[in-house]
Amino acid sequence: MRVDSGGQANRTKAQDRARSVLDARPEHSADSPVSIHAMTVAYRRRPVLWDIDFDAPARSLVAIVGPNGAGKSTLIKACLGLVPMASGRVEFWGQPLRQARGRIGYVPQRESVDWEFPVSALDVVCMGRYRKIGWFRPVSRSHKEVARACLDRVGMGDYADRQISQLSGGQQQRVFLARALAQEADLYIMDEPFAGVDAATERAIVVVLRELQSQGKSVICVHHDLATVGEYFDSALLLNMRVVAAGAVGEVMTQQNLHKTYGGRLTLLSEASEAVARSGV
């Protein structure tokens, strides 16, 4: 927004104009699990995300794709209120975050916590139930049963009583996924769930994602592996500070868009993107 040096009157006029431009954009549907409206995020005055507009389609698996430093994690953290927005608005099913919290499941990055923490896998999954349990009350048996069932769903039923530092990276990731499942949400937001996991975990996560979709839930994942975007997801948001492209995977994941997203850094990745193109999605 550029402002002429004409003083207060001009300034407000310019702001009005900017606002009317924003308002002229298509209004977001209440059906969309997440609508991001003119979001800008800056760290210490350096913009990380610039004027993001995005409507996530309902009941689909969405990948957020982009190079390192593109602001993928920042985007979902800003949506969830973990990072302050410089400007913009985020709505969940047409409601602000405050009213929608109970319907959102969250899988943070695995590296974001200290896995030496003295709790078992089951204890961590139970944290997904805390909101339903409320202040001061201990975790009841019925909540523990739900948590156990969630561990079973990700193939970790046998590890319920393990201390979390004794799990492999992939198993830890599955514990986080189980915790999100225990939230019984309608929208699941995941930060790099496939990062650095073993093949068994990757398969388990994919199965869970498909299950969630068939139950009518929506999933948004930050995803780093271009080769599997077409296989695992229906829609993609290509991000590099701005939205480069968004829509169905087949339409979005084109050579041209990827070049725009990754710039000169595509040399190593071009092979993978060609594989996506060849696989016919």
Binding site: K77, L80, G81, L82, R101, G102, I104, Y106, P108, S112, V113, D114, F117, V119, D123, V124, M127, G128, Y130, R131, I133, W135, F136, R137, P138, V139, R179, Q183
Partner: peptide, 22 residues
């Protein structure tokens, strides 16, 4: 003792606690 669960949640994973509305 009363706040054991809440303290554990915030100490282990602050971001998750925030997102779930604590």
């Amino acid at each position: 003792v009363l706040l054991l669960k809440e303290f554990a949640l915030v100490s282990f994973n602050e971001g998750f606690a925030r997102v779930t509305g604590w």
